[in-house]
Design a protein around this nucleic acid. Sequence first.
DNA 1: CTGAAAGCGCTTACAG
DNA 2: CTGAAAGCGCTTACAG
Lengths: 329, 329
Amino acid sequence: MSSIREVAQIAGVSPATVSRVMNGTAKVDPVKREKVLKAIEKTGFVPNEVARSLFRKSAKLIGLIIPSIQNPYFTQLASTIEEAAKEKGYRVFLCDVGIDGESIADTLQMLESKNADGVVLAAYTPDTEAYLPKLNIPVVAIDCRNSTEHVRASLYCDYYRGGRMAMEHLIETGCKNVVCIKGDQNLFSARMRYEGYRDVCTEHHIREQTVDCDYDFIAGLAMTEKLLKQFPEVDGILACNDIVAISTYKFLRKKHICVPEQVQLVGFDDIHLTRLVSPELTTIHQPITEMANRAVELLTDENREHPDMPEVFPVSLIKRETTGKDEIR
Amino acid sequence: MSSIREVAQIAGVSPATVSRVMNGTAKVDPVKREKVLKAIEKTGFVPNEVARSLFRKSAKLIGLIIPSIQNPYFTQLASTIEEAAKEKGYRVFLCDVGIDGESIADTLQMLESKNADGVVLAAYTPDTEAYLPKLNIPVVAIDCRNSTEHVRASLYCDYYRGGRMAMEHLIETGCKNVVCIKGDQNLFSARMRYEGYRDVCTEHHIREQTVDCDYDFIAGLAMTEKLLKQFPEVDGILACNDIVAISTYKFLRKKHICVPEQVQLVGFDDIHLTRLVSPELTTIHQPITEMANRAVELLTDENREHPDMPEVFPVSLIKRETTGKDEIR
DNA sequence: CTGAAAGCGCTTACAG
DNA sequence: CTGAAAGCGCTTACAG
């Protein structure tokens, strides 16, 4: 592993000159330039990023904090963020922190101490906000409630509207007994989705029926069992996300309950998986790509605008095969 | 963001002493020690990892190079590696490189220049090996053919045996016309799986029937269509991995072909998703966790053993719902 | 155009 | 036990 000094020696110039030709940061005599280039080629010299980043106080790095790499929603987010970041010359450091607040704090600290240039925070626990003021690098929150002052920006989807759309769709397709599988109400996204459902219930003079569930497959299976016991008349289910919807489907199928003929089902997120399973899942689409691009833009752009208001992205209903029992399929 | 000097000043000691109490690397007078601790507390000082890593020439970092973060096989691998690494005090830098050889080279270089302590290489292209000799950090290859000399170790599963087991299982459950969906034959895993299938065909005097396919969902859909045209008599399919098996199922279902009654189906990998879809997928299990743990061990352990031979992990057949048409389900 | 010097923020011999 | 010094491998004023 050759150093800049070695290259300089071979080329017969100073390390400063080598640095200058590498970075194109100043004019260099063409002859010396050539010599340096050759020396670099010969030695296979690659500048040490750690030294660079120590000097520059930037590692050209964006941290991405997510609660689970096993959840496709977050890997899709990660892919898009990585792509956008790459285009601007940044790498992304993906950090899977689970749902542990302390782990989020540690990770934020670690990212700062690695000279990361910013972080996209897509994991949230109630005490996360307490760690933000101490941080000296910008963070853009995704899917979280707006922790205003200590965050450069807050990006999320119109979950409330999504909850409404899903419920309205189920009513339109003939459901009389819709149960909402609520996600963890500490999560902004879960709360808003539920409130959308609830308000539509109120407007239609329907009694709300809910069950609580975490955002994962195992919880979904267990909750569906409970749901069927508690609400045997159910003919429509609004799941808190796609993974839970898929597990709900799985449990219904095991109980020989036909979807959508007997029970209609709507998920949330529109992850790729919704088109991979059979039947394909009706769901609420979130513009993941747009959010991801915007997050990177906010973190990397020169003119550091700091939107005071959260930016809300629109959602849309994607009708697929788990709803619309009256239609021909 | 306070520095060690600031802390030192507040505590009335030298930066060296602060360093010593932080790292417990030498005895420090208890009184000064207390003062330092208080100063650290007061300032919220967190040592800069970049400076540390420049000095130490280690970033306590393991790179993990994968071809796609969208493939659950690799996120499961990533989770396990991360867990094992964490236990030994390392972070993991996940790098999704696609199937582009040059991108792998860039990434290896980047990891070295970031003072990574080692890399787990789970992506492979034919020209990858050319980059390995230049590298000055250890790499453990997973799922790749043994690039012997320039790799600390090579870990993979007994894909050949897996291919055999899958085919033998299909024969046992009554299939007369098994088609093998071959993966990219540049990949060691795909080649070995196919060879297992092929040899069982030979032993049973069955003519081999194959179709080529990449390791992803889109390719799987297209290939299944082609497969049905080319082999209308098919009654068993050996897919190159679970994702492709799931897409195969999807296409069969669309064509109203029942699984496993009309066509039996076996995947490969045993990703979590196989139990999430309906019907659950019969597949060949790989001990991902064991491989991941071993990889981290080889990269981080003191006594730097360098196994000359590749380490081969056993596979097993997991019978689920897409095979065994004669059994009651 | 170019080299010597200082410095990015740490850590560890070295000398006391 | 502890501080001053040197150094990790770069980069950029600074002076020529």
